[in-house]
């Protein structure tokens, strides 16, 4: 475990806490894409199948439970909570995310580490996580203005992936046989997707203006 990896996991955790804060503090999920949250729940459920079979460390197990639990709680909240679900902008969240699931699953069947059930699902979860933010980014561009907490949520999600890239660079130079091409390439694609968001986020922060994404 290196500092970059820990920083990455912590920013990932912070992003989820910021989202939970937004939903519980404002009792609203306006501006949040339910499709992205469903994709993240699917990512965690298909990636952490080893939760019950492989014990890596207490930290690893606890974080997996937190990620699975929080992502399912957010999806449940946006679908079922009688107050929160009324603020879901269904007409803005129109990305056809089933295509993302089909495309990433097809890719996982073609490009994998080992052709086993768990490894195919692991590769699927890696590819799916790379594109899971798309419905959310599209929704932000549609809604034009981004409220403060939602902007921070996406920012921390991007920061988490950026730390993971530093973690892979660090491990590449410090561990003999560290080759994790699927995760590295997919992680690079994922972080690149945030690049334009980061750019506009930085501009709005510098001008101390409200974050506006070009339509």
């Amino acid at each position: 475990m290196n500092i970059f990896r820990l920083a990455g996991d912590m920013t990932h955790l912070i992003s989820i806490l910021v989202l939970l804060l937004k939903i519980y503090a404002t009792k609203s999920c306006s501006g949040i894409s339910l499709k992205t949250q469903e994709l993240y729940a699917l990512v965690f459920l298909t990636r952490y199948l080893d939760l019950l079979t492989d014990f890596i460390s207490i930290y690893n197990t606890v974080m997996k439970l937190v990620f699975i639990g929080s992502s399912l709680a957010i999806v449940w909240c946006m679908r079922r909570h009688r107050v929160v679900r009324r603020s879901y902008d269904k007409e803005l969240d129109t990305f056809r995310h089933y295509f993302l699931i089909a495309a990433t699953f097809a890719l996982a069947v073609l490009v994998y580490e080992k052709f086993t059930f768990r490894e195919i699902l692991w590769a699927f979860s890696i590819y799916l996580e790379a594109v899971a933010i798309l419905p959310q980014l599209v929704m932000l561009q549609r809604s034009g203005n981004v409220d403060n907490l939602t902007g921070k949520y996406v920012f921390f999600l991007g920061a988490y992936r950026a730390f993971y890239i530093l973690n892979w660079i660090y491990r590449y130079f410090t561990e003999a046989r560290f080759t994790r091409w699927i995760a590295c390439v997919s992680g690079l694609v994922q972080t690149a997707l945030y690049a334009d968001f980061f750019y506009y986020y930085f501009i709005s922060w510098k001008n101390n203006a409200k974050l506006k994404l070009p339509a």
Binding site: M1, R5, D54, I56, S57, Y59, N60, K64, N167
Partner: peptide, 10 residues
């Protein structure tokens, strides 16, 4: 942390 297992990252 006992690293080294294959998918040791989150």
């Amino acid at each position: 942390f006992s690293e080294g297992k294959y998918h040791d990252e989150l």
